[in-house]
């Protein structure tokens, strides 16, 4: 199946379509991405950005087209074998706008539990890795607290650590800073930037135009369920070709 030219493609999407009832939310989306790339997805509200991410890790089942991610192929209409699904969830880490930490577990348990249950690590191994990751996101002191005692920015960094603990090959971010004050969002963006520099493959849905422009290698601009423009960050953001893209960028950049 694997062709040499595409071997390093970590994501490949062809003709992706998704409807909710009569509402076509994604329509003929094509894109691909190499390992190590950082792709920002921008676009107006309701353009299908979250749905795209959710299809990539199968929180939503797509109803048209083909998705290949981390070597797992998923054709619309065909059930994904359990083994592939497990591999997919292990390979793709997801970070949500609303953090979704488990409120009844300490920060450490939040990060260690999935390692124990999914990767079969021992409690000691898992905790060691969790503490190392907390250190990395600057929250070593929070291990034994409950998430409710942490600020939003801290919670999001913990959520990132939790996803990283499973050693994913790609990280998906859905507006990770939208629920945060801009200032607090910066600490999260800093962690993400560091992650990008370390070579992690990342797809980031974001309204942070600065992040999209400076950190990502490539920008995908979506509108009404389609990819409107796609290319190197600077090009898409400074010299958009379509009028719709110009209009959107004008609106968000002059805010």
């Amino acid at each position: 199946m694997e062709r040499t030219g595409e071997a390093r493609l970590i994501v490949e999407v062809k003709g992706l379509g998704k409807s909710f009832g009569a509402h076509k939310v994604l329509d003929g989306v094509d894109f691909s991405m190499r390992a190590g790339e950082v792709v920002a997805v921008i676009g107006p509200s309701g353009s299908g950005k979250s749905t795209l991410l959710r299809c990539l890790n199968q929180l939503e089942q797509h109803d048209e087209g083909l998705i290949q991610i981390c070597g797992i192929g998923m054709q619309a209409g065909l059930p994904v074998p359990r083994k592939d699904m497990n591999d997919l969830r292990r390979s793709a880490g997801m970070v949500f706008q609303s953090f979704n930490l488990f409120p009844h577990m300490t920060v450490l348990r939040n990060i260690s539990l999935p390692q124990e249950r999914v990767l079969g690590r021992s409690r000691a191994q898992a905790d060691e890795r969790s503490r190392a990751l907390l250190e990395r996101v600057g929250l070593a002191g929070k291990a034994d607290q409950y998430p409710a005692r942490c600020s939003g920015g801290q919670q999001q960094r913990i959520a990132i650590a939790r996803a990283l603990a499973l050693d994913p090959r790609i990280m998906l971010f859905d507006e990770p800073t939208s629920a945060l004050d801009p200032e607090i969002g910066l600490e999260v963006l800093a962690v993400m930037q560091e992650l990008a520099e370390a070579g992690m493959s990342m797809i980031v849905v974001t309204h942070e135009m600065h992040f999209a422009e400076t950190v990502s290698d490539r920008v995908i601009l979506m509108a009404e369920g389609r990819i409107l423009e796609e290319g190197p960050s600077a090009e898409v953001m400074r010299r958009p070709k379509t009028a719709r893209a110009q209009q959107f960028l004008h609106a968000v950049l002059n805010r």
Partner: peptide, 11 residues
């Protein structure tokens, strides 16, 4: 979001 987080973590 809780079950979605659990799902994406592979539980």
């Amino acid at each position: 979001g809780q079950s979605e987080a659990a799902m994406t973590l592979g539980l």
